[in-house]
Design a protein around this nucleic acid. Structure first.
Length: 279
DNA sequence: ATGGCTCGCCCAGCGAGA
């Protein structure tokens, strides 16, 4: 299975480019973030013409996530357990949920397309929301893997965290003053790894960014961030055979500000043909 | 020159993004 994640920054603005990429790179499963539309506005036909099923979750012009897959998409969920919500004037436990997560089972893999809240600014209510959201995701991961340690689980998407200083090449994003690089956010990201997930791309692609701001020539100057990740459980990570960050997708006409991150995974599900012979 | 963008929205500034 070739699995990709891409924050597309409006699927309606970029559907041709997105589908072309998926076809050209033989992507089996494409997790998208920031589709920026309601489900009824999603350009399903363009994907279906290219041989993809699509499940989308979008509530407004903000956020929105989707999964396209060549194989059937089963057991779709639009929130993980205890995922917090957020809205102006609703910062408590009853806050409405945003469209930031869609999960499904595809080819035996539990895949989540995730758009972690931005945080906006240190001390902003959105920053607290971001940390609570990540904590709930960590607890979901722990619970899922406690129930089934061999579950092939992949959490993929825009995590809006640069986990190390090497992942921050934007001179305006200063540790101590900015989101994405603050210690609590980095600790929240590390906690996902403690909960049983591995960044399956970094060992194969040790450096490079996945996002460059549209402003101030950030891409020509290569002042980007690595904030888009594919995190896999042990059984998923053990099957990974390759990975790539498609930097060229930041070039050309009307690019997203993010680029696709891709892994190849061979889960080697035992079946009748490769069950060991016993004499 | 020391800043240069891009979405979607009841079309015009605005909220949001990182």
């Amino acid at each position: 299975m070739r699995l990709a994640t891409w924050n597309v920054n409006s699927i309606r603005a970029r559907v041709e480019r997105t589908v072309e990429f998926a076809v050209r790179e033989s992507i089996d499963v494409l997790a998208m973030q920031e589709i920026k539309c309601k489900v009824e506005q999603f350009p399903f036909a363009k994907f279906e013409e290219a041989g993809y099923h699509v499940e989308a979750h979008g509530l407004s012009q903000w956020n929105g996530v989707a999964i396209a897959s060549r194989e059937p998409i089963e057991d779709v969920e639009t929130a993980f357990a205890n995922m917090p919500g957020f809205a102006k004037g609703h910062e408590g436990p009853d806050a409405p949920l945003e469209a930031r997560a869609i999960g499904a089972t595809i080819g035996g893999v539990k895949v989540w397309s995730l758009y972690v809240p931005n945080g906006r600014a240190l001390g902003d209510p959105h920053y607290d929301y971001k940390l609570r959201w990540l904590k709930a995701l960590e607890e979901y991961t722990r619970t899922s893997l406690a129930g089934d340690p061999d579950l092939p689980l992949a959490l993929v998407g825009d995590f809006n965290i640069a986990p190390t200083d090497a992942d921050n090449g934007d001179p305006t994003i200063v540790p101590g003053f900015a989101t994405h690089v603050s210690p609590p956010e980095r600790e929240a990201f590390a906690a996902l790894q403690t909960a049983g997930l591995t960044d399956v791309v970094r060992p194969l692609v040790p450096s490079g960014y996945t996002y460059w701001d549209y402003k101030q020539l950030r891409f020509p100057r290569n002042q980007g961030l690595r904030i888009d990740f594919i995190l896999g459980s042990r059984s998923f990570a053990d099957g990974v055979t390759g990975a790539a960050i498609h930097r060229d997708e930041r070039k050309g006409d009307i690019p997203s500000d993010h680029v696709p991150v891709v892994v190849d995974v061979d889960l080697d599900e035992p079946d009748d043909d490769d069950r060991p012979m016993i004499f």
